[in-house]
Amino acid sequence: MSSREKILQQVKANKPPMSPLPTQTTFASIPPEERLTAFIKSNENAGGIVCLVPDVAIIGNYLKVNFTSPERILNTVQGVGFGLEADAPITDGRAFGNLEIAVVESLLGVAENGAAWVTEDNLPTRVLPFICEHLALVIHADNIVGTMHEAYAALNVAATGYGTFIAGPSRTADIEQSLVIGAHGPKRMHVFIVQPF
């Protein structure tokens, strides 16, 4: 008998009595008019720098003023207009070993924790938002939901081969519980929230 059969057989023989899935599926949320403020607060608590912008082109101006050279930036969001652009998928992420800034679009934000959903459909390669030194996410204010429950109701996580919630720059507190921002992923993170005036 294979291990598979052996395990399944023993699980079947030993499993506890039937217990139904919970039926309650609604949880308190954050009212729509408070979500933007809540998202900003949660993301800042997680170490993000949040900027409200009226349109995507303003992000390009911001990057130009702050980072001067377009070679430092890989931009994957249409309309930003500053930085290098990746026009084809990149098979080997190691090409980005020395990349300073990546501009990436997030399709959904979560107010309760400041997390933003990023999928490979919006990335030239999966490692991009991790390997860059500084991540800039772009998200539309309308795409901010209240809680994780609403996030999963709005998403089909299996529709993409890879997707991740990102809440702030990478961090660790493994040395004496001292919080250090910048572990293996980005050391800094901007979130540009596009909200037409």
Partner: peptide, 30 residues
């Protein structure tokens, strides 16, 4: 997948008090 909403809300808050870990990565295909 909808159950992740429940568990991801609990996991990091219980562990370190963060509302969520910095990265929650979902792998479905290589």
């Amino acid at each position: 997948a909808e159950h992740l909403g429940v568990f991801l809300r609990l996991l990091a808050r219980s562990a370190t008090g963060q509302p969520i870990t910095t990265y929650s990565s979902h792998f479905h295909r290589p």
